[in-house]
């Protein structure tokens, strides 16, 4: 694997070759390259933006409403008096924050249950497999609607993330389970036993490192799913309607007729930024998949 090749060389090697090798790899795996480039661009945009915006202008009524882009409001303002540039700088990260909370909690749960299922086998595995199958068949979004509807708009950013996490663990659990099962059959696990390692150390030192690229790809696609769910809930009016996140922008934009009022900037800011996020996450995730699975790479 290429990542490993780059770490193989003794550190006395000049750094430039490593950079060049990375660039060469991105040429073979453009998804990862473009995705990471989009991430860097987003980070730069945010850092530059943080020097220029006043966070309070991201809330309703802070500035004059319905203003088209100008020198004063470079992205314009929305119908309720939020500065859209401020929303763009801050809201993108609030949106990603929900995604990461949900994905991290969901992944943690999924990895734990997937490992347990594969490791203990027997009835634990049997029960967990059924539970995973059930969770994979139920469209989680429908249950999210039920839960969010009960809680109304009273959920915090973190709360939304946690609720979404309830429906994100099954996919990673299934992947981890099958990966562990196939890794466990590999001879290096037998060799590890002969080396005197106990089961816990075999899991963490022998199996886990080999799973890292898979887990990375899974984590990013879980973030994507979480961002989708949170934006979807927002559109239905079930998100946190006070915070300046992108989903909330979509809700106000559609319910207050931004399109028919011809306010293209109000439409464009959340749509373009969300598209940016989704494409970026998708590319990084499929790039990492390629990294993790050389067979996929050969197929290209």
């Amino acid at each position: 694997m290429t990542v490993q090749t780059s770490t193989v060389q003794p550190s006395t090697r000049p750094k430039r070759t490593r950079l060049r090798r990375a660039l060469l790899y991105f040429k073979r795996n453009p998804s990862l390259g473009i995705g990471l480039f989009m991430l860097i661009a987003l980070i730069v945009f945010t850092i530059v933006g943080l020097f220029q915006v006043d966070p309070l202008k991201g809330y309703a009524g802070a500035v004059r409403g319905s203003q088209p882009p100008s020198a004063k409001y470079i992205f314009g303002t929305d119908g309720q008096g939020r500065d859209l540039y401020t929303v763009a700088v801050l809201g993108t990260w609030v949106t990603l924050e929900i995604g990461f909370i949900a994905a991290a909690v969901g992944m943690g749960l999924g990895v734990f249950l997937g490992f347990s299922s594969a490791y203990f086998g027997g009835w634990v595995d049997n029960i967990l497999r059924w539970v995973i199958d059930v969770f994979m068949t139920i469209p989680g979004f429908l249950i999210l609607i039920v839960l969010a509807a009960l809680l109304g708009g009273r959920v915090s950013t973190e709360g939304t993330g946690l609720i979404i996490a309830l429906f994100l663990w099954a996919g990673p659990a299934r992947v981890v389970r099958s990966q562990v099962l196939s890794l466990r059959e590999r001879q290096f696990v037998q060799m590890a036993k002969l080396n005197g390692l106990n089961d816990m150390r075999i899991i963490f030192e022998e199996l886990f490192p080999n799973l890292l690229p898979f887990l990375g790809a899974q984590l990013i696609s879980a973030v994507m799913g979480a961002v989708y769910s949170s934006a979807g809930l927002s559109i239905l009016g079930l998100g946190n309607l006070r915070e300046p996140q992108l989903g909330t922008m979509l809700y106000f934009m559609t319910t207050q007729g931004a399109v028919v009022r011809g306010m293209w900037w109000w439409v464009a800011v959340p749509v373009v930024l969300l598209c940016w996020l989704f494409v970026m996450l998708y590319l990084i995730s499929s790039g990492m998949d390629e990294l993790a699975n050389p067979r996929l790479r050969r197929r290209q």
Partner: peptide, 22 residues
């Protein structure tokens, strides 16, 4: 096509409304 498959339908819907309907 890859680009489109990453984007959720509701965003495509907003873009389509703006361009083709409005």
């Amino acid at each position: 096509l890859i680009l489109f498959s990453a984007i959720p339908a509701f965003l495509a819907a907003i873009a389509l409304i703006y361009v083709f309907a409005y």
